[in-house]
Simulated scan of single mutants.
Amino acid sequence: MNAGFRYHGGRLTEACARYGGEAADWMDLSTGINPNAWNAPAGLAVDWRALPNPLALHALELTAAQYFGCALPLCAAVPGSETGIRQIARVLNLPGLYQPLSYGTYSRAFAQADAIADLSTLPRRPTALVIGNPNNPDGRVLPRARLLELLDHQEQHGGWLIVDEAFADCAPDWSISSEVTEERRLIVMRSFGKFFGLAGLRLGFAIAPQRVLGALREAFGDWPVHAAAIAYGAAAYADAGWIAETRRRLVTQAAAVDAVVRRHGLDVSGDCPLFRLVVVSDAAGLFERLAQQHILTRPFEDRSDLLRIGLPPDNAGLQRLDAALGDG
C-alpha cells in the first residue's frame, strides 16, 4: 500500500494508478466530505476577472458569524481550516498538544508538538491544545462542559485551547463558537468544505480574539479567499432549508452504513455522521480488498486495526459497499 493513502484521504489519482480504472469507476469513501454537495443556484455567478470584493468578503463573514453564533469581529475567513490551523500555530508560537488518534495536521502544524493520551494530565505550562470536536477519525464528541474545563486549565497556565469544529455542522449544539470572547484564550476553527461537500473551494473560518485574527489577516493579506469561495460560502450558509434537510439525511445515511458494516461482523464507531471508524484486525488487508473493487477508504499509519469509511452517495453505492465487504 502506498504510504500516501495513510496521510490524507482523497488520493483518487494515486488509487487509479495503483489499482486501475478511471476516476469515474471509483467510489471514494476515503474522506469525511458530504458526497451530496450543496448546489449553487443558477443565478449565482462568479466574475473570475475581478479581484475578490472586500465588501463581499465582509458580507460572507457576517453570514458565517450568524450561522456559527459568534460575534462578527471575532470571525475571519481563511483559505481552508487546515491552512488556518497551521498559521495559528505560528501566530501562537507555543508547543502543541494533540491526542494520539486525531487529524494529522495537529502534530505537523507546530514546531514542537507532543501527543497526550490522557487529557486529565495536561502540563502546567503554556501550550496550545488542539481538540477535534467531533474528532477525526473516531467521531468522538466532547461535551461543552468538558471543553470549558480544558479551556480553564489552559488559561490558568498561559496556554490556549484550539477546537477544530470541521465536522460540527452536522449538529449545531456541538459547537462552542459562542464561547469565544476577546478575553478568553479560545480559538475555534470551522470548515466549509466537509458538510457542504465542496472541499475544493478551500474555505474555512477562524473564530478568535481580534489579537489573533489581526495576525492572521496580516499573514493572509488583502485577499485571503478567492471570489468563488466568497460567493458560494455566503449563499450556502444562508440556505437554511438545505442545511436542515442535510442534517437529517446524514444521520439516516450513517445509520445505514453502520448496519451494513456490522452485518459483516465489523465494529464501527463515531458520533459524526459524515464518516465511520471501523475496527478490524487487518485494516490494510480490508483496504486492499476494497481497493481492488475500486472503493477507496482511509487507513492509518500507526493503527493497523483501523479503517475510516465515508458515506456512499446513494443506495446504489451502499449496496456496492455491502457487496464488496461480503466478497472475501
Rank of each mutant, 00 (worst) to 15 (best):
I85G: 00
L55I: 04
P79K: 02
F68P: 00
A77W: 03
L55C: 06
A77N: 04
A76K: 06
A64S: 10
R49M: 13
Q66D: 15
R86W: 04
A71T: 03
A77F: 05
A65G: 07
W48G: 05
V78F: 02
L72F: 14
H58W: 08
T83E: 15
R86C: 06
Q66N: 12
L74R: 13
P73S: 04
A50N: 13
G80Q: 10
E61D: 13
C75W: 02
A64F: 14
A50V: 06
A76T: 10
L72G: 00
I85N: 00
A65V: 03
P79W: 04
A71S: 12
F68Q: 03
G80E: 04
Q66M: 09
W48Q: 08
A71V: 01
G69A: 06
L57T: 01
L74T: 02
R86N: 09
C70G: 02
G80R: 02
F68R: 01
W48R: 13
A77V: 05
A64P: 02
Y67E: 10
C70W: 03
A71H: 07
A76Q: 09
E82V: 11
T63S: 15
T63F: 04
E61Y: 05
C70Y: 03
F68N: 02
R49W: 10
L60E: 08
L55V: 06
C70S: 14
C75Q: 03
P79D: 09
L62Y: 02
A77E: 09
C75I: 04
Y67W: 12
N53W: 05
R49S: 15
F68T: 00
G84C: 08
L60W: 04
E61S: 03
C70E: 06
A76N: 00
A50F: 07
E61H: 04
V78C: 11
P52E: 08
P73D: 11
G80Y: 10
R49Y: 12
L62F: 05
